[in-house]
Amino acid sequence: MTNNEVVINAAESVVEQPEKKAPIGIFTWICVGWLAINVLVAVLAPLLPIPDPNEMISMPGMGMSFDHLMGTDDLGRDIFGRLAWGSRISLGVGIGSMAIAFGVGGPLGMLAAYRRGKMDVIMSSVMFTFLAFPSIIAIIAVLSFWTPRSLGKIIIVIGISSIPLVYRVMRAAALSAGSKEYVTAARVQGARDRRIIFRELLPNVAPTGLSFLLFGVATVIALEGVLAFLGLSIAPDIAPSWGNMINDARQSLNNVPQNWPLIIFPSAILCLFILALNFVGDRLRSYFDVTEVKL
């Protein structure tokens, strides 16, 4: 070899600092742990020794005790049991509807961004027209007529109404990744469309997608709370969602003001869960952001 002088030597050392990212941080891990506990409880609720949410197992309005970790409500039902079972509904709505939204909006957005041209114009005009319409009104309208409301129906309605938003985010992410020279370079190597979408685009839009997914779940869980407040979520006696519990508590608190755990616990859990989701989502985004680590 003639160009010995260019063989990387100690002085040139490619990466003097091999990608030292800011550490993930203990707080993020706490949030992740908290999210994991919630998900586990929701998934494993039937197997765990969790009190039945609808059974009046004890005196109403009991304080916290070993038997009833968070006390009982005004009908003598175990609050912890109701919260744990309720997480199945709340998380189900959040994750289920986002699965629909990402399952449809994600691929469409990426395809539109990659292909551009007519396909993009047509899909984007449809999607952006829907985006212009306030989706909360559509959701309320559909849910007030489509009765009886079940978990599945709520997931479908929220999921479909979120498709345009996910489409827009994923399309924007893929557009920016797709305009990079490495996509052109891959084409020059002879890579076909599918390979480019999976090898070049997907890894670069995945972090954006993942963090947006977490924000989406958080938003939908909060939205379900709002729907419950309006009496538009699943009827509380089938299974209580967190939102339903807060709504119930608000009404019963008027009668029994000292029964504060009834409103404190569901609100706190809901808040903490959403906060943790948002925080982890944000941290993920910066963790995977390649440009932020580059010196």
Partner: peptide, 8 residues
């Protein structure tokens, strides 16, 4: 050529 590149 100058081998290597400017220091960190």
């Amino acid at each position: 050529t100058i081998p290597g590149r400017p220091p960190n």
